[in-house]
């Protein structure tokens, strides 16, 4: 019983990381139609930003977060302004261009920070596990869970309860008519892309103490994030949350009976089978094409 409870908590922890990683991707794809393959590399930038701030200025992980969000967001903003904005309405080309951008970011980091693995220290006060209903759970993972929840609420408020969100939803529905109503479409796009990139940066910062930091760390994450988005359906925030939750649980249970790699392969096969029968994603009721 305790074992099962432990597994569920593990699943929730993985799910929160998955959601954290895929949230930015889902927003950028869902509202702008841009397939951002550089998402994983934004995440990697976030991890390196923390490593840099920590090793150079001795700033702790949590105080870094705001700064990391801004730095990676700015990088995203600059990339949107210079490259992505020429590619709206050509999703395949955005995929190709962002793949190229990802390679450039990776190599730039490899040249400036070195190709060796880097390690980010976990904050001291979060190292000790917390006892929750009879099982020990890592305080750090609990914190990630909390931050993810907070970001989810913030994103929900931003999209559905703010003036900017209203403009974003208008632009998503019809950019031309939004423009006629005086909405600055390109500004909305740029800010959305920056927000998505910033979220990726935060995700990178938060996962950095769990695993080592390397220039090509993003590839695995971006694939996971895409699986979450594909499974949940692209235009639904709820779908992303639900699918991250499901995949998180599935991975833990599969990993419990086999190992992590086989679990990933199994999860992928499941997503593939799911796509065969429900290509629009599990949690989308209405399909919009085009």
């Amino acid at each position: 019983m305790v074992e099962a409870f432990n597994q569920i908590l593990n699943g929730l922890s993985i799910a929160s990381i998955l959601l954290l990683v895929s949230l930015g991707l889902a927003i950028i794809y869902g509202s702008m139609g841009v397939i951002n393959l550089a998402h994983g590399d934004f995440l990697m930038l976030g991890a390196y930003a923390v490593w840099f701030l920590q090793s150079t200025f001795g700033i702790g992980l949590l105080p870094c977060l705001g700064l990391v969000f801004v730095i990676v967001g700015l990088v995203g903003w600059a990339i949107e302004r210079t490259l992505i904005r020429h590619l709206y309405g050509r999703p395949l080309d955005t995929l190709l261009a962002t793949w190229g951008i990802g390679i450039i970011l990776q190599q730039a980091i490899r040249l400036s920070a070195g190709a060796e693995l880097r390690y980010v220290k976990m904050p001291d006060y979060l190292i000790n596990p917390i006892n929750l209903f009879g099982t020990d759970i890592s305080a750090y993972r609990l914190m990630i869970f909390g931050v993810t929840l907070a970001l989810l609420v913030a994103t929900y408020l931003l999209i559905f309860r703010s003036n900017f969100g209203m403009r974003l939803r208008a632009v998503t529905q019809n950019a031309e008519i939004s423009r006629c109503f005086g909405i600055n479409v390109s500004q909305v796009y740029a800010l959305t892309f920056a927000y998505g990139a910033g979220l990726a940066g935060l995700a990178g910062a938060l996962v950095s103490p769990l695993k080592s930091v390397s220039p090509d760390m993003g590839t695995g994450y971006v694939v996971d994030a895409f699986l979450v988005v594909v499974m949940g359906g692209v235009q639904s925030l709820f779908g992303t949350v639900a699918s991250a939750g499901m995949l998180g649980q599935l991975s833990t249970w599969f990993a419990f009976v086999s190992n992590d790699t086989l679990a990933r392969a199994l999860v992928f096969s499941l997503v593939l089978v799911m796509i065969r029968f429900r290509p629009q994603g599990l949690f989308v009721t209405q399909v919009r094409r085009g």
Binding site: I35, P91, L92, V223, A265, V273, I275
Partner: peptide, 25 residues
């Protein structure tokens, strides 16, 4: 799996990329 489900465009690319990463692992 993918073409019978009429999956097209970018989805195909994403799925094939995921397949690559997983077989590599």
């Amino acid at each position: 799996f993918i073409f019978r489900a009429r999956v097209a465009g970018v989805y195909v690319s994403i799925i094939t990329l995921a397949l690559l990463v997983i077989i590599n692992l």
